[in-house]
Design a protein around this nucleic acid. Structure first.
Length: 209
DNA sequence: GACCGGATTATCT
DNA sequence: GATAATCCGGTCT
């Protein structure tokens, strides 16, 4: 058991170990649901339960940055070991993925939404809103709320400042198409989006498949 | 629904 | 060096 301090409140957590990240990308995308995503900064600690993920399957997945093994400075960490953070910028926003798959298999899981847990006042300040539901219900929103930036590129989730810990086991998981990849041919219909059924912090409502 | 900001990259010239 | 495209969010209609 590790202890991290969020101002006055000690946060007791059990970090996920290296072995957790070595399961298949499809399993990991579902097993990340309910886990706690934590970020420590000089401003304090903020954390939330992961409630929505998307799997990006690498060379064969036209929607993935690593499609056809495209290997650049940006995609490089995806070719490394599982359990590392792949952050990238899209327009004005930073998005965070969990690298998965074996070495040289550039797969990753996008964290699309979390449910706020600790550090909620800090998240409200960062997001400039007091509406709880609007703090972390999208991939760009949660990085801003938790303070995840391009500085976290290549950082391991096994140790501070960016961590994933045990949370809860979701009662039921829903499956659907991924979001925002309309120009990715047949890949746009792959059932690679997973969310905690009925959770209010999921980014968009969508039919299950 | 549409528009646009604006970082980053790939693909041109 | 220019341009188009992008795993998005805020704002408008």
């Amino acid at each position: 058991m590790d202890t991290f301090f969020n101002n006055e409140n000690p946060l007791q957590i059990r970090l996920k170990t290296k072995e957790f990240y070595q399961q298949s990308t499809l399993e990991l995308a579902q097993n990340l649901l309910g886990c706690l995503l934590i970020k420590e900064t000089s401003e304090g600690v903020a954390s939330g339960y992961i409630v929505e993920t998307e799997a990006y399957m690498g060379p064969e997945d036209k929607a993935a940055h690593s499609f056809q093994n495209r290997r650049t400075k940006r995609t490089e960490v995806m070719f490394g070991e599982a359990g590392i953070a792949y952050t990238y910028k899209m327009h004005t926003h930073c998005l965070v993925n969990v690298v998965s798959g074996e070495k040289e298999k550039p797969q990753a899981i996008l964290i699309r939404a979390v449910e706020p847990f600790t550090g909620i006042p800090l998240m409200k300040t960062r997001r400039q809103t007091t509406e709880l539901r609007n703090l972390t219900n999208g991939p760009g929103k949660l990085t801003k709320a938790l303070g995840i930036t391009m500085d976290d590129y290549g950082s391991s989730f096994l140790s501070p400042p960016l961590m994933i810990a045990e949370g809860y086991i979701p009662e039921s998981i829903s499956v659907g198409k991924r979001i925002g990849i309309e120009n990715s041919g047949e890949a746009k219909d792959y059932p690679l989006r997973f969310w905690v059924k009925g959770n209010a912090f999921v980014s968009r409502h969508q039919r299950e498949i």
